[in-house]
């Protein structure tokens, strides 16, 4: 019995971890390229979820097949979120390139507030129910108490996204350019890499994964409002830092570690202090490894 409880917490933590990972990937990629904590990343996630909800509700009135609706709504959500991400970069971050990092950070905070209130004013402050679109998978029947079909979908998607991103960064020309930009933007520019294009691509990928996360998590939880992005963003950021910000495997590892910490902490100690476990764990890890679990120590140039 105890072992079963442990196992339940383990799987629960893994699902949490995959959720964080989907958001943390975008965070870490943007950070890797332009060294900016993109506070508005959580808002992109929220807008993705909202767009999906709107289209899914409208389409479900037409009586379409739920799976088809889910796919169409996800694609639309991803495209719109990418649009928001790229536009945001052009407005709030591009003019600040090369200025102080604190100014860019404040700009990101402003953007986050703006987008939150934009959705609040244009839509509603209430929690909206997300239509149930994902059918129960037959083959999950025997382990239904452990893993639902939506959480199964989240696990699979995270795995695919991670493999895709690793491939993209390690083995393609674009990935090479991204790595070069992250190492030394000025040098990369001198060698003929179009930095603006690389940054745009990064925001496209980051926003797309965030929107995907938004859609999947909202189907999993079943409801959303304008504020979900902020908390998710902070948690994902903690995960990214825990793993070593700027590193893709680090973000995923950090997310899983964070998911497990929270899951076991709430399961065995107390559910009131969920966030405290996350932050305390982060502080302890950073004391012993100041640049995260997989982060490379920063070189000090003198």
């Amino acid at each position: 019995m105890d072992l079963l409880y442990f196992f339940e917490l383990f799987v629960g933590g893994m699902i949490r971890g995959s959720i964080y990972a989907l958001i943390a990937l975008g965070y870490t990629m943007v950070y890797g390229i332009i060294k900016l904590i993109n506070f508005a990343h959580g808002e992109i996630y929220m807008i993705g979820a909202f767009t999906a909800l709107i289209f899914a509700s409208v389409l479900s009135f037409t009586g379409m097949n739920p799976i088809l609706i889910f796919i169409i709504a996800s694609i639309l959500a991803i495209s719109f979120s990418v649009g928001y991400g790229v536009t945001m970069e052009k407005i709030a971050y591009k003019p600040l390139r090369g200025s102080q990092r604190l100014s860019a950070l404040i700009s990101a905070i402003g953007m986050s507030m703006f987008l939150q209130n934009y959705v609040l004013l244009a839509q509603t402050s209430d929690f909206l129910p997300f239509p149930e679109l994902v059918p129960d998978f037959k083959f999950l029947e025997p382990i239904k108490y452990l893993i639902s079909s939506t959480s199964f979908l989240i696990l699979i998607t995270t795995a695919i996204v991670m493999i895709f991103l690793t491939y993209l960064i390690k083995f393609t020309r674009t990935g090479k350019a991204m790595r070069a930009t992250s190492q030394d933007a000025r040098m990369a520019q001198l060698l003929g890499i179009n930095i603006s294009k690389i940054i745009t691509i990064t925001f496209v990928i980051g926003s797309a994964t965030a929107a995907l996360g938004g859609v999947l998590i909202s189907t999993h939880i079943g409801q959303l409002n304008f504020y979900i992005g902020f908390i998710a963003g902070i948690k994902a950021f903690v995960a990214a830092v825990l793993g070593g910000i700027g590193s893709i495997p680090g973000a995923v590892l950090g997310s899983f570690v964070l998911g497990w910490t929270e899951s076991f902490g709430t399961g065995y100690i107390s559910s009131d202090y969920e966030d405290v476990f996350a932050f305390l764990f982060l502080i302890i890890i950073l004391i012993f490894r100041p640049s995260g679990i997989l982060g490379r120590p920063e070189n000090n140039k003198v």
Binding site: I91, A92, P95, L96, S99, Q100, S103, A104, I106, S107, I109, G110, M111, S112, M113, F114, L115, Q116, N117, Y118, L121
Partner: peptide, 17 residues
């Protein structure tokens, strides 16, 4: 709050100091 957010962005873009 909407305006506040916008002001933060605008301030930083045009007067980062």
């Amino acid at each position: 709050m909407l305006m506040f957010g916008a002001i933060l962005v605008i301030m930083m873009v045009f007067r980062p100091g």
